[in-house]
């Protein structure tokens, strides 16, 4: 196991280096220049040239690359070209927000999807199953953008229960923090709840037909134990894979939700910096996101061994 972990970690570093390098050169290959974006139409060519020089953007790509790697090795991601803030600070501010939304979204979707998926499988082709299926497809087919705005109109404008926008750090109190997160988390969680519910249902259906379930029932175990201990645990393997992917996607793909609710999270930071060609921020954000993906995959693989002892890594 330890050897396996070491190997995986080494791969992780290699993957992240590859991603970082690819992003570094791709960013510089696409048209558009951060300095012209920053200085705007009033800028003189001299001012643009001077600023490019001040920022080191006039050096050859490979020199910039080596400098960047060197600084990266020392834990320095540089400063945003556009707003001058340190990339570490920008990401350090953005990540907790996105993380909070993602955790809450996942919690909401699991709380709804797991029971619904189990019930759906047990009561296959009955009324509760149909209801759960229709709701799941609704959840899956509503675009985040639209759902977010509808939720704002209902819960913020009409009912006045929840705030329409913004983020409040946990340090300002649990309730204000949660209030600001509920709508964005619900919005981003909906689609994943639907996927997880459908996944749980089909995995459960498959497991319920397995011989060991019949054996368990023949042993005279209570139905509750059969379902939760024997069936669910085995059905969870594919579900956990989906949850792992869902969580990674929640972390990086929240850009629509973040735009709608005006929360400066990871997704929004990344997309805005791509539009502004803010190289250091894009590089830092992609590196962080690659790290999240690699880490989540590793975590999921390790979780397998706990859920199913038959899976072992050498």
């Amino acid at each position: 196991m330890r050897r396996y972990l070491c190997k995986r970690l080494l791969y992780a570093v290699l993957v992240m280096w590859g991603v970082a390098t690819l992003v570094f050169f791709m960013l510089r290959a696409i048209p558009g220049d951060p300095v012209s974006v920053m200085l705007g139409p009033e800028a003189t060519p001299e001012a643009v040239a001077q600023l490019r020089h001040n920022l080191g953007l006039d050096r050859p790509f490979y020199v910039q690359y080596v400098f960047w790697l060197w600084n990266l090795g020392r834990g320095d991601l540089g400063r945003s070209i556009v707003n001058g803030e340190r990339v570490l600070v920008l990401l350090g501010q953005a990540a907790p927000r996105t993380f909070a939304i993602a955790v809450l979204a996942l919690a909401i979707s699991l709380a709804v999807a797991l029971p619904a998926g189990i019930v759906s499988a047990l009561k296959k082709h009955t009324f509760p199953d149909h209801v759960a299926t229709v709701v799941a497809f609704l959840g899956l087919s509503m675009p985040n953008f639209w759902l977010g705005i509808v939720l704002i109109l209902v819960f913020a404008v009409k009912l006045g229960w929840l705030p329409a926008l913004g983020y409040v750090p946990l340090s300002e109190g649990f309730w204000p923090w949660l209030r600001h997160l509920l709508l964005p988390a619900f919005t981003s969680g909906t689609a994943f709840a639907a996927i997880i519910m459908r996944m749980t249902r089909s995995a459960m259906l498959e497991v319920l037909h397995a011989p060991y379930i019949s054996t368990a029932r023949a042993k005279g175990l209570r139905e509750r134990v059969v379902i939760l201990k024997h069936a669910l645990k085995n059905a969870l393997i594919p579900v956990i894979t989906v949850i792992g992917i869902a969580f990674s996607l929640l972390l990086v793909g929240a850009v629509v939700v973040e735009e709608v609710f005006a929360i400066q999270g990871l997704g929004r930071t990344l997309v805005r910096s791509i539009i502004n060609r803010d190289f250091p921020v894009v590089q830092g954000a992609i590196l962080l996101i690659a790290g999240i993906f690699v880490g989540m995959n590793l975590l999921v693989d390790i979780l397998y061994t706990y859920i199913n002892p038959r899976i072992r890594y050498e």
């Binding site: 705005i149 704002i152 109109l153 329409a164 926008l165 735009e259 609710f261 005006a262």
Partner: peptide, 12 residues
């Protein structure tokens, strides 16, 4: 608060 999404700004 910078609010790029006009719909949200109006709701707020």
């Amino acid at each position: 608060v910078p609010v790029p999404e006009a719909e949200t700004a109006v709701a707020a």
